[in-house]
Amino acid sequence: MQRINFKNAVLYKDMMVRAKRSNMSILMFILNLLLSIVAVIIVLSLNLSLSSFQSPSGAILPWFFISVIIFESAMICLVVPPASAGSISGEREHQTLDVLLTTNMTPLEIILGKYFSCLIYIGLLLLSTLPMVSIVFIYGSISFIQILALYGTLAIVAMYLASFGIYFSTICKKSSTATILSYLAIWVLIFGTISITAIGSVIVMIRNDAMNYEIYTLHTARAWSRDPFFFLLYLNPAATVVDVVGRLIGFDFGSDVFGGMDYILYNLGDNIQKTNFFIKFWTPISIILQLAVTFSVLTAAAKILDPTTHKKAKSSGR
């Protein structure tokens, strides 16, 4: 087991270098500009469409909130790969990796330093949008705790996705290759898991000789939980966000607030059981699984980075 030093020189250095670059403040400005445009469009269009007798808050808030979530999630998906995938491969490209590996830092410490510097960077970008998101407080009915819960979920998504960026950065010589692979990994996690689950469900359906039945009956909680492909969706960060958002605001925009995955499955199948364990605890299960994957991926990256653990590794220098 590698010892971890909590004073991490790589983290300090990376944060210092990132802070000195102007691209972070430019990116913050662009993000907030885009977010403010979204906010203005949503608020104006909904205000105009509503009659003067209706209170705008009930209709505006969920739409604004959902727009913000989509925006922030998209921002994470777009920013995490370039922020994380250049970390180790960037050191390799700058020819500084060898000297870094001869210091007292273990490969795991180097990986964690890179990982947390990336997370802090993403976190600062997310936090910079908080004032814009706080527009919802003008109308009320969404609490600060709910906003925090949303940001917490987005932070976990960023942690999850950044681990893949770090991993690809470790195995790829070029940052560009690592970035492309990281985008691909995000694509697979979001759309691949949905596709595989859908195809898998059809296969299960055929094997169960269920084609004669109404198709949606197989989307009952019982059928879902018996379908092994269904569990792949726990690895889908979008599913986690959808579930959390559903729990925060409710997709029916009414009082019946339940998880997003409940809502989706409810609309797919007519026999959905909301009390089913796997559905009811979708968010905690998926978060625990995603954090476990994150830990495994980072540990694997540290092992790959350790020059003494892979004896058959190729070396460019002789």
Binding site: K13, V17, Q95, D98, V99, T102, N104, G317
Partner: peptide
Amino acid sequence: RNKVGYVPDFFGVYDNL
């Protein structure tokens, strides 16, 4: 690592430091 220091044939430096 405490006993050895290494200067590789290709040495890189960091920007902005």
